[in-house]
Design a protein around this nucleic acid. Structure first.
Lengths: 347, 347
DNA sequence: CTATCATTCGTGAACGCTCCCAATATATTC
DNA sequence: GAATATATTGGGAGCGTTCACGAATGATAG
């Protein structure tokens, strides 16, 4: 199956140098005369030579390949473009840094163990990126046992010592809540994501911070737990309506969409009666009426950072391990407006 | 970076056989006694041995790795879950068949050529899957020159001889149109996708076939070209409305959504005045009011077939190369209804 | 002119596996 | 019981690199 005919030996012969010298040129060793280097580079260019990756791996004990593992069948995989964007970012960095990217999606966890073993022990990977693992995913202990450098995409408090990158959910949620406050809202409800997930917790934390900062008393009845889905947004909003918040911060766009449906069904107008904000900026957010004010996470950057960080770790295992957080962006659209109006918004 | 300490030699010693015999066991050669096989398997299991992939590649001249290349920054990548589903299907087959999957996304085509070379000439890949290439993508000639077995995901009439798999756009569109006919519609308009794309053409062809089959004269004024986007659906529908079709088949859900917006804006009811059907079954299709009748493509199956076909080709380069088409499913929801009513639907 | 040193280069070993070939053990036939 | 066929097995070569080492070259100092 391998087409690569030219060998280093042949290159060396053509350039009238030894294998070693040719190798040194390829690996940019400083101990090569200018003349020899030029010779070799010319021949390489002319013959379109590519070193045989498998052999380099064998000898140099590094594969120049990193693995991207998506351990669970993430439902989110199919409703928001998180994964393609992440992969895009990772892929870009891999190209730029001369790495290959191996992908492992885990549709069924039937033979998960054999799969993990296959990925980890085949000697195919220099390092590993794990995306969206649930907190107690069994791959993480496996990973540590295998001594592969790795970076988690998504903070995992169960393993605080593993390097990670994440979107800054706290700040994103805080900014959004601050924005709602700046519009004059004081009675701001939130529909949280599942509180047994890190993003769920973090987005709630951001909401709390913003209220505290603005010295608005936190009313626990205005905090209700959803599970990121549209249905949960719908039903939670129905209950929340009685409390007459003037604004609602939903921790996902899907829940925001559900909440808006509930409000409309009850004859309330968004944003005139109630402002609603979401989180994620899924494609549907622009496609609805009104368009959704939301928080955009630059997942592309997240992927880039994850890959950069892992490669940094490969080059220097002791590299500093502080986490990286790409910034989030507020996307203000039609579903929110000022609250500087009469107390009872019955026009 | 490589952890894999056990070597075949060690396994052989532990099992009191030679390297060769151990190798034969691993590669399921028939020329091994039951006793020896048992011995070796026991040791392998006990030591959790994994053969070193790079060496196998070096010697056996196959990598057990296939590449998935997504050559262009496909905008669709970020709005519909095509890519994750495809990858999921491919990944599943790879695991089952003992292959690794290498991913290459092409965000920018800045240094496309060097990237192609790197993927094709590094000897890393046994075969290649190309997804969603535009018709004249330069990777296809490169691919042929590199003599890699490959399978295109998406038919490419420019290269009819390259094996491919695709969703059956013609049949999907035909079925949907037949369904509209079965509801009693006779004046059925279509908003096509870009007609310089294969899916655009194929979906139009399916529409035509259904009408021809039902002996409904094809009225070319009812065929208008969009470009798969929501905006194009919106504006095309505005023009189309004057012609008073009772049903519209849009070649993408996005266009159907745009069309519905145009109709609503003009005070027409969907489905009471006009039935609208889409294509793709994107997540937003269930999230609208009314929910969209559409065609679901089992992209997951498409990925599976693509991988299966490629692996088949790797095992036997002369394997029959007939294309595989996963079936499409009609998803009937609220945006369509019977037309068996009074001629003028002004209630 | 010789000794010392830095620079540059080339040889040989090794990586861990598969494949080829020859050798051995076992079964079968006459 | 010898001769032959068959089923197993083991040893050696080789895959294309990198790396450690030592040799060669040239420059500089004494």
């Amino acid at each position: 199956m391998i087409e690569n005919c030219e060998t280093l030996e042949q290159i060396a012969n053509l350039a009238r140098v030894s294998r070693s010298t040719a190798s040194r040129v390829i690996n940019s060793s400083p101990y090569v005369s200018l003349r020899a280097r030029k010779q070799v580079l010319k021949v390489i260019h002319r013959t379109d030579y590519q070193p045989h990756q498998a052999v380099r791996t064998l000898v140099a004990r590094r594969t120049n390949t990193i693995g991207l593992i998506i351990p669970q069948p993430v439902p989110r995989l199919f409703t928001d473009p998180f994964f393609p964007q992440l992969a895009q970012g990772i892929s870009e960095v891999c190209h730029r840094r001369g790495y290959y990217l191996m992908l492992t999606l885990m549709a069924t966890h039937a033979d998960r163990d054999s799969l993990y073993r296959r990925m980890l022990h085949s000697g195919q990977l220099d390092g590993i990126l794990v995306a969206s693992a649930v907190l107690d995913d069994p791959i993480i202990p496996c990973l540590q046992a295998s001594h592969h450098p790795c970076v988690l995409v998504g903070r995992n408090p169960t393993y605080p010592d593993i390097p990670w990158v994440d979107v800054d959910n706290v700040t994103g949620a805080r900014r959004m809540t601050e924005y709602l406050i700046s519009l004059g809202h004081r009675r701001i409800a939130t529909i949280t994501g599942s509180l047994n997930t890190v993003p769920g917790q973090d987005r709630l934390e951001g909401y709390r911070q913003a209220l505290a900062q603005a010295e608005i008393a936190i009313d626990d009845t205005l905090i209700t737990e959803g599970d990121f889905t549209e249905e949960s947004g719908f039903y939670t909003m129905k209950r929340l309506m009685r409390l007459e918040p003037t604004a609602v911060f939903a921790a996902s766009d899907l829940m925001a969409i559900g909440a808006i449906k509930a409000l409309k069904q009850a004859g309330r107008s968004v944003p005139d009666d109630v402002s609603v904000a979401g989180y994620d900026d899924i494609p549907a957010a622009v496609r609805m009426e009104p368009q959704l004010t939301t928080v955009q996470q630059v997942v592309f950057d997240l992927g880039r950072m994850a890959a950069e960080k892992l490669i940094m770790l490969l080059d220097d295992p002791d590299a500093s391990a502080y986490p990286l957080l790409p910034t989030t962006h507020l996307v203000v659209r039609g579903s929110t407006r000022t609250a500087d109006r009469w107390p009872k918004p019955e026009s």
